[in-house]
């Protein structure tokens, strides 16, 4: 069965790149350009994994992560944080909040692919 990955990212080119890589790897991809849109999609569709940017207009990535992890129906969905901020405390904070991984941009196509596959495989 084809798994669905949701990408929440406001930069259109970064979003398209990640989305294209995952499509080429056989996933179904949903795209959201802000937090509200992302939360709306995750509530409507069966999502296997979320790729989440932290710096988003309006409801930011931290808020999305908090909402996902505090909802019993959604908290089991792995979230990969995917950000241009390399600050160490942010990494700690995201992992403590339940993020499955914390990736700092720029990222190669292989790194995106491998991280997603690895986390979905680990989850079984």
């Amino acid at each position: 069965m084809t798994k669905t990955v949701l990408i929440i990212e406001d930069e259109v080119d970064v979003r398209n790149f990640a989305s294209r890589v995952l499509e080429l790897e056989g996933y179904r991809v949903l795209q959201a350009e802000d937090g509200e849109e992302g939360m709306r999609l995750v509530g409507k569709r069966r999502v296997a994994l979320v790729l989440l940017d932290l710096r988003l207009p309006g409801c930011d990535g931290w808020e999305v992560l908090k909402q996902l992890k505090s909802d019993p129906e959604l908290s089991s969905i792995p979230v990969i944080v995917f950000t241009a901020s390399a600050a160490l405390p942010q990494r700690e904070r995201a992992l403590n909040m339940g993020a499955a991984d914390y990736l700092v941009k720029p990222l190669s196509a292989a790194r995106v692919k491998e991280t997603v596959i690895h986390i979905l495989h680990r989850k079984g």
């Binding site: 930069e11 080119d13 970064v14 790149f17 990640a18 294209r20 890589v21 080429l24 710096r55 241009a84 901020s85 390399a86 700092v104 941009k105 720029p106 990222l107 190669s108 196509a109 292989a110 995106v112």
Partner: peptide, 22 residues
Amino acid sequence: VSHELRTPLAIIKGYSTMLLDY
């Protein structure tokens, strides 16, 4: 500055590796 520099770098790195891999 870090964010602003990393974003276009992410686009360059992402698409160029994608062009190579696929």
